[in-house]
């Protein structure tokens, strides 16, 4: 926006999307502030601008046109835009569901989990991040505390730690919570067969697929 030239809503959405896609922090601030100044609905700006940009990032990542550095930079820009627009939300964004996410116990690898969180957030999911090295009881306790969780999502990078996923499934069964949530898993050593073996509901090979699986599990397109 140079000078006081008024921008159309569509142009601002396009700028927000481009800013995220290019990882351009300056542009995202400029476009997000313009959206507020023009009285554009913040919810719409997030969905049509920031999230649209992040969806394109996901598509590029899936096609191996983008790699982790590009995704992480875009994710930072996305967060920057959210920070500006969020206080101006007049209503909650309709969410497909709440996801409780963590890297299982004895595993400190969280970069994949963090990217899945960004992609899920950009798709409207509410995500509660339990962090890394998360024991089974932490998943159980958080569900009890929050009350309504739609999906428990777990990540593991090593065969050393992947059996921790089964421990979480067992802990949920023991506490009578298993039938109240869907369970999805992912990470380098995880496979569909392992997912079936431990009795989880969904497996995703990468972050973009993670969004598709999460949507399927909560019954939305």
């Amino acid at each position: 926006m140079k000078g006081d030239m008024k921008m159309s809503k569509e142009a601002i959405f396009k700028q927000l999307s481009h800013a995220v896609f290019d990882g351009d922090d300056d542009l995202v601030v400029e476009a997000a502030e313009a959206a507020i100044k023009e009285g554009i609905d913040a919810t719409e700006a997030i969905i049509e601008g920031l999230a649209a940009g992040m969806t394109k990032v996901g598509e590029y990542y899936e096609k191996q046109k983008y790699f982790l550095p590009e995704v992480i930079i875009s994710a930072e820009t996305f967060k920057q835009g959210i920070k500006i627009l969020e206080p101006h939300l007049s209503k909650d964004i309709a969410s497909p569901g709440t996801v409780l996410m963590g890297t299982v116990i004895s595993d400190v690898h969280d970069i994949g989990k963090n990217i899945v969180i960004i992609m899920l957030s950009a798709s409207g999911f509410k995500v509660i991040d339990l962090g890394k090295d998360v024991p089974p009881e932490a998943f159980v306790n958080k569900i009890k505390e929050v009350g309504k969780v739609d999906i428990v999502a777990m990540s593991a990078l090593m065969t050393t730690s992947m059996m921790g996923m089964q421990d979480v499934v067992e802990a949920l069964k023991k506490e009578g919570l298993r039938d109240k949530v869907k369970i999805m898993v992912g990470g380098a050593p995880v496979s569909q067969r392992f997912t079936d073996d431990i009795g989880a509901d969904g497996y995703a090979g990468d972050a973009v697929e993670g969004v598709r699986v999460a949507k399927r599990l909560v019954g939305v397109q």
Partner: peptide, 11 residues
């Protein structure tokens, strides 16, 4: 830190 390093590769 892996995530930081990925960021530094770009910035």
């Amino acid at each position: 830190g892996t995530e930081n390093m990925m960021n530094y590769l770009a910035t």
